[in-house]
Design a protein around this nucleic acid. Structure first.
Lengths: 382, 382
DNA sequence: AAAAACTGGTTGGATCATCAGACCATCAGG
DNA sequence: CCTGATGGTCTGATGATCCAACCAGTTTTT
């Protein structure tokens, strides 16, 4: 008997207390009330309603805004009461996650699973761990064709029926995918920048990062800078580019030429990037510093420069807008922007849990700002 | 009934959302855990507990204070763990709860979680995913002090009582840890080489890898080779070293000087490794090729050589016994040995499931053999 | 026996959800 | 036209929660 003493009947899951959001509860109750035809035609006034529900007006309005998004209530007009548009529940948003039952969250990413960025990999793992503690299972869908199709609706419907989930986490998704989810898709959280849709999102403030990097390079004396970005049409990249441009255009006391942008080929191939860098370094407008948006670009550029017997930062400065633990193993320490995977995972976890439980969530109040690591890969010019 | 009046069937109560307090939930959960005899004698430390429960320390302490008032827990004393006063049914009465009960598997690794090798990270995630599908939860214990202690028994006992698990996966564990588990520890699976104990293990055949690498270098004309290994006393490293030596000593028709070995400093610091490489390259027995056992060494060596305007493979050939997806982004493609994380995870999954269910498992018949990727980082000498 | 690590206790400052109050422009109805 | 109700927006206050320190003891490790 003693030999079996270590067998545990306890799961760590038992230890994780459930977090409740007043907003989520409010939304659920309000949705049910509208759906069951409690009010005909229009809602009571906000002030009266929140006194009835014993909640603040902000909370009530957040819940109402959410239902507007779901199409249950028409957008409000000043002076008039809100109109109820539909009595039947849109997409059957039933009350979810009765205690003990297992829910499913799907994480959708364009990358191959084996090629997932280590920070993202860690984030997914932490997320999976936490979700398991709250009774949810995380499915990771990688390398789906929905990212390559120009008209992905059919594929998305199929994907959605293949993976019936309580909520989706959409990582680096394109505009058409986001639009489909916003229109008729299941509850979801954007892990990346929204592109013309109104969906809850969690992401880094790439504009601020780009601007900071630009300011730093300017202070270090760099006037000829090139940003290297992947081919993908992601808004985060646009923001980084805009932030960088902004830093150069708004620089006081001196008129600076705007930084240039180099787009990678669609394949993201290392050899192709190396060839582009070679041409760039031989061009008349040879930059003194590169702003890299992906950690893999750091490896490619660094190793390519080595083959040309060029040194970082003497011959070319590098600054990365992303971070990888591998940077710590590179000898001229790479100047970069580091965000904590566990922190991000925790935020995503809370939001996605709320979304899975209530159907949607309030929008993130403030974007994440990573820490700047001043490495030795940027040299100070005279 | 149909003729019922206009009088509303709705009560105002329906509209009032419930307010939950995290503190109340926490107290309830904690109380139940103590009452059911989850921990014997004393509670885990506050910091560990709140990380497990995913709550702040203040919240946890408030809950504990409440239970002190109830008399379930003795008042705390600085320096000592909290004692459970109400000893209730300490007998291992296994209340076989309904099906679907979660088991717990613990994955023990010496590395920081943020520094986990990407292949291992992927493997852990796949393992967690599969285990979740079989009703098990994977807990990852990283950076534990049991790896640095010369006599870790006490710490292991504490660890074991803090994490009651059905089975353990021991990644890169030292001999004393393995001995403790073999003697009185719970069921476990070694993810790495056994060191003087008889425990089920899953690992790569590093002897074969080392021998193959040696043979390949010899065929490419290299006669002066150095193996770079971390400081850790792991048998896998010894095996790789022995395999390499073996290839050189058994080479037919020619008597070769045995390859040398370079041990990293204990910290595994990039700058320290770079300094060692510098000395090595200036020594009279300057090697023509390095055999690297860790992927991070590839990054450090590569980037350090670049600072010296030395090129790979013209000035120094590199071959890695390990693999990282990042190698694909390095321009002279790194010769390396790649093993599939998903395959490894599948094997570990099956074994650990067997161990968790039965307490032991048959020993693995065949060790894993990774694929050799013939990269351009090894040059052919005359 | 000294050093290091861990323990409960305490503090101050952050963030966030929520609330309450105020102001405004708009609209309906007299 | 006036008046009151309505949605839209802003402010500051508050409490729950978290986090990073620091402290003074105790245990563990060397």
């Amino acid at each position: 008997m003693l030999g079996a003493s270590n067998r545990s009947i306890f799961s760590l899951m038992d230890l994780v207390p459930k977090r409740h959001s007043l907003l989520a509860e409010t939304t659920a109750i309000l949705r049910e009330a509208v759906r069951s035809g409690r009010w005909q035609g229009s809602l009571p006034g906000e002030r009266k309603l929140c006194s009835q529900m014993q909640i603040g007006r902000d909370t009530l309005r957040a819940a109402i805004r959410q239902m507007e998004r779901e199409g249950l209530i028409a957008p409000g007009q000043a002076g008039r009461r809100r109109q109820i548009t539909s009595v039947h529940s849109a997409t059957g948003v039933v009350d979810r996650s009765p205690a003990g039952q297992h829910g499913v969250i799907v994480f959708l990413t364009p990358h191959h699973r084996e090629r997932l960025h280590e920070t993202l990999l860690l984030e997914v793992d932490v997320l999976r761990e936490r979700l398991a503690g709250s009774g949810y299972r995380l499915e990771v869908v990688t390398n789906s064709k929905v990212f390559t199709l120009s008209r992905p609706n059919k594929a998305l419907e199929k994907l959605n029926s293949d993976f019936p989930a309580d909520a989706w986490v959409l990582h680096q998704t394109t505009a058409p995918i986001q639009r489909w989810f916003a229109d008729k898709g299941p509850p979801c959280l954007l892990h990346g920048q929204p592109q013309g849709v109104d969906l809850p999102a969690v992401d880094i403030d790439y504009t601020a990062v780009g601007r900071h990097a630009g300011g730093y390079l300017i202070r270090q004396g760099h006037r000829n800078v090139t940003l290297v970005r992947p081919h993908a049409p992601l808004r985060g990249l646009d923001m980084a580019e805009a932030g960088l441009q902004n830093a150069f255009s708004k620089h006081p006391g001196e008129t600076l030429a705007p930084p240039t942008t180099m787009r990678e080929t669609e394949s993201g191939d290392a050899r192709a990037l190396a060839e582009s860098i070679r041409r760039l370094m031989q061009s008349p407008r040879r930059p003194t510093a590169l702003v890299l948006t992906r950690t893999r670009q750091v490896l490619t550029v660094l190793s390519f420069l080595a083959t040309q017997r060029m040194r970082v930062p003497e011959d070319l400065s590098l600054i990365a807008l992303d971070y990888s633990p591998n940077f710590d193993y590179i000898v001229p320490q790479i100047a970069c922007y580091r965000s904590d995977a566990e922190t991000t995972a925790r935020i995503v976890f809370r939001k996605v849990l709320e979304i899975a439980a209530s159907g949607s969530a309030v929008h993130s109040p403030q974007p994440l700002m990573p820490d700047f690591i001043a490495g030795a890969s940027v040299t100070k010019l005279a």
